[in-house]
Design a binder for these strands. Structure first.
Lengths: 204, 204, 204, 204
DNA sequence: AATGAATGAGGCTTCATTCAT
DNA sequence: TATGAATGAAGCCTCATTCAT
């Protein structure tokens, strides 16, 4: 149970890659619609238009299927973050933060249910805390950016955790307004970043 | 599926109350350890030391069991919030906010896994969001406090959502430091509360 | 399983008799409404307004409960038949047959579902074929009547079986008309009674 | 509950058809022996020599399994009736009626318990009575035959109900004699068919 | 490689029956 | 004697996974 298996084979042929993509897409759609409990390997295979046997050809079990989606989500997030920082290069850090948040928010608003499942319902996210290479890369990326702006780079991990939480929590609002949410999240994160190093508690 | 059943019979005798408490306690422990999917009615009954039939005497189905825990969590949260505001009455609002966050954080640090399940994994999203009387009461409570402090009371719903997200997200940290997390969360929420009414996106 | 237990105790007190009657009445109503599968001892006890424990005080198990209803039905049928024959004494046998059929039909139209269950769905009716004393008494009664009218008394068993089948089958019609059904059933039974002793088949 | 599900997938391959046949055969045997309540999906699968999963591959639930048997019985009855009428074409209607009854009786004597369950215990009474296409076809077939013989075709529905009742009732006799029973049933039905249109109740 | 029929452990739930109070 | 909470065997059904074709 604790092992998170990888895809059984690297899709070498174009057809294989297409099948894998179809399966992942189908699984994502079901996850978005019905949650983790509503996803069955048979439903995913059917929606993907392949046989259940073919699904198991590429994914050794159901967990691997969701793990692949999780991984894909990590890649998208990393790419989005890098792109946002690149495009906003030169702007004040607050503006860059807004860009970052806005980009991530857009990513999640496209499929809030899916991301909620991947981030919260997916039972394996406690297994590898930070040794997930994608998470690590994202942390490095953000830490580097913080350092470049004179901000405390060691706050990158928690900053990401806070961003994640806020984005997922607010993306589930009834009628989410991207611009407004961006301001809220960015403001909250900025406040964290500018918190004095280890200010003594006033009371106690 | 959309029905949210209630307990099948109110525990009248002392024995009954004890059985119900044991079942809830067992369910909470399993939920904490194995997540929603890992909770089975038979496991809960066994861990509670009662027969499966007894479980169904008090809870018409598995959902009702989790719903009861959810409800209990809501009550605890509401009581905690009220108590924190009462105790900190007269302090500046920032200090009150810290008290509030600190109290809620303490509540969640006691069983972070359980609360993650109850708040995020528990598929109650089909139920009307705010007609949960406990949530509504909590919102009212916070809105009243905000109004009393000259803060925008209409931000109570989102404030609570943000608090929730941050607390649950950060409570899962490896070695959470309550005091430190409190400062982070409070700062983030304070920043949201003091955001200008509808500031233009251009300005910092 | 093959044993058909009797009521555990003879109701001596008035209260006991009342409780037993209430339980039987409740069971009959549920049987009528929901069929054999829909009858549960707990439902019967609740509808009767007594505790499940009390039900088992008077009926050792569920089968005994239904057996009691079955027995009661047999008694009613026997009484009805005797009464019909008595009242029609002196009339030609065809008229008496109509009286008999009419009386039985009326009995069944009052609660067709219940009687269907008791006669067809009740799994024990294959166990004692004719050693049921009530059935035997009914057969004797009818045989005697047949003999008195110069009709073949040895056909009583099959006559009763045919009457039973027809009455139960036709009582389930959508809008049963008692008078019309009586004529149909009586005509059919009369035809059987007047069938030549062992007439050679015309063909073959 | 009111849904009357169909087979989940039509047996396409030879293997599938064999499995379906084995399941139906096993279910029929259990139904015959133990009645509806005694039939369990697991017992049927085991007796059929297939896994419980395979049973549910072809029958979405227990009801569908029995419905399939019911349907099969309807088809057999219809075919038998048509064949009997065809073979006896040209004979006087009384002889044809005997052929009809004889053929149906033979059908039911092969497995009287099964047919009793299918016709009487099977709780299909909520389904519209005559929109079962097989029943309707049988009625049409008989009505047409009656009309051709100068008999009241509008009596076909009740005639069938009476035939059904009598056949099922008498097929359960201890040592049924087909020829004898045929004469009894045919005589009874003939009497119904020749009943005067709406004769006054007073006359004999 | 692809297919999809087959498998069977295991989950949820019911209900006849018992027994402590 | 009455009560009703407690019991647990047993039934229905799902779904991850395998394997013969």
């Amino acid at each position: 149970m604790p092992m998170i298996p990888q895809a059984r084979k690297q899709p070498g042929q174009a057809r294989s890659r297409h099948v894998v993509a179809a399966i992942l897409e189908a699984a994502a759609r079901i996850l978005e619609r019905d949650g983790y409990a509503g996803l069955t390997t048979n439903k995913a295979a059917e929606l993907a238009g392949v046989s259940i046997g073919s699904l198991y050809q590429y994914f050794p079990n159901k967990q691997a299927l969701v793990a692949a989606l999780h991984s894909r989500h990590g890649e998208e997030t990393l790419a989005t973050a890098r792109e946002a920082l690149r495009l906003s290069d030169g702007l004040p850090w607050q503006a860059q933060l807004e860009c970052l948040v806005s980009a991530c928010l857009r990513l999640h608003l496209a499929a809030p249910g899916l991301h909620r499942v991947l981030e919260r319902e997916w039972p394996q996210f406690d297994a590898p805390p930070e040794d997930n290479p994608l998470d690590a890369a994202l942390q490095d990326c953000v830490a580097e950016w913080l350092a470049g702006g004179g901000l405390p780079a060691e706050r990158a991990p928690r900053l990401l955790r806070m961003a994640d939480s806020l984005i997922h929590g607010l993306a589930l609002e009834d009628a989410p307004d991207e611009a407004e949410l961006t301001r809220c999240v960015a403001a909250a994160l900025a406040a964290y970043l500018t918190l004095p190093r280890q200010g003594p508690e006033i009371s106690t």
